[in-house]
């Protein structure tokens, strides 16, 4: 993989230029996964702004390229080019979905962010890969963020209802929709209106934002009435992690395994991010993406989590209870009460 990205025939302009300034040849010096440390940490600023074509590997010249963006809550969003990766990621993920909950040939409804996000094409591809057709209801999260910043909570609520109303119309009009992709908050809102089970939904693939163990328990025990629940963690840079099935034994902890070897998540000491913490210990998530389309070594995510031991199904490290990374800061409160 390193040879591909740093070869003048196949690598992208960004990495070829980067290597030119190193004074050493990564193809020779990087022989193991651990050697990737020599490249230092990938900076997320590199992904903000153009030219986006500097990320297209020469080995894929002439192929149709898509660009996917992250949330973009502040400033210029990060972007990642995609050619086939999202299809490969979601086809791999498809193998982890049980056929009785996500029947082959059943249609899907996606209720969540579309627009410039990977989910737009990825969920549709997942549906098509499983022989289904995907209906879409769009949600613009950047507009929601603005409404919240302005304190327009009522308008945010009305926008959410607008999204839910559209989903309800589709669910009632198309009885072959049996599978749902939806974000956690929209799932709650939808289940306030209808019983998904009664509408014939058999599987819910939930993601897009952070989920807590308590949310998962609430979804399983109170929202879904036995409908299969697949919480997932994914992002534009990594791809899609698969979850270990939820259980009360794990206290509904959300345990994810990255799509290794295409991407690795390691849990590292925030003060010494080259050091991986022990199993069960808390640390900052560090991502390494290694596909022919994308090379992102040692990227420090804005998430924290616990390091999880391998299991039979996924014999590599996982992560538990991913949540936003925050160092606590106190604020002075004047006149409490």
């Amino acid at each position: 993989m390193v040879a591909w990205h740093f070869s003048p025939e196949t690598g992208c302009p960004f990495w070829l230029d980067y290597a030119a300034h190193l004074g050493w040849d990564p193809r020779r010096e990087i022989q193991t996964y651990a050697d990737l440390d020599k490249l230092g940490f990938f900076q997320d600023e590199w992904l903000r702004g153009g030219p986006v074509r500097r990320w297209v590997p020469k080995g894929f010249a002439g192929r149709p390229v898509s660009v996917f963006e992250t949330g973009g809550s502040t400033g210029v969003p990060k972007s990642r080019i995609n050619i086939e990766d999202f299809r490969i990621d979601y086809e791999q993920f498809s193998r982890t979905l049980p056929d009785d909950a996500f029947p082959k040939g059943a249609d899907w409804l996606q209720v969540g962010p579309t627009g410039p996000r990977r989910l737009r094409l990825a969920v549709e591809h997942l549906a098509q890969h499983r022989g289904g057709i995907c209906f879409m209801v769009d949600l613009d999260p950047r507009w929601v963020i603005k409404l919240i910043k302005w304190g327009e909570m009522q308008m945010a609520e009305r926008y959410k209802q607008h999204v839910i109303d559209q989903a309800l119309i589709l669910l009632k009009a198309h009885p072959n929709i049996k599978c749902l992709f939806i974000t956690p908050k929209l799932l709650e809102a939808l289940c306030e209106k209808v019983s998904l089970k009664k509408l014939g939904i058999t599987g819910v693939f939930c993601g897009g934002t952070e989920m807590t163990p308590q949310f998962c328990r609430f979804a399983v025990e109170e929202l879904l009435e036995g409908v299969y629940f697949a919480p997932t963690y994914g992002n534009t840079l990594m791809g899609l992690a698969t979850h270990k099935p939820l259980s009360a034994e794990d206290n509904y902890a959300i345990i994810y395994y990255p799509p290794s070897p295409r991407a690795m998540i390691e849990v590292v000491d925030p003060d010494e991010p080259t050091r991986v913490v022990g199993y069960g210990e808390t640390g900052r998530a560090r991502l390494t993406t290694l596909t022919r389309e994308t090379f992102i070594p040692r990227f420090l995510e804005r998430d924290e989590c616990e390091r999880e031991a391998p299991v039979d199904l996924y014999p590599w490290d996982g992560v538990r209870n991913v949540r936003p990374f925050r160092r606590f800061s106190s604020t002075v409160v004047e006149g409490v009460y």
């Binding site: 956690p184 908050k185 709650e188 289940c191 306030e192 807590t212 308590q214 949310f215 609430f218 109170e222 929202l223």
Partner: peptide
């Protein structure tokens, strides 16, 4: 014990 928002919202229906 901490209540998640959805649980509160559902109860208050």
């Amino acid at each position: 014990s901490q209540a998640n928002v959805g649980l509160i919202r559902r109860d208050l229906l």
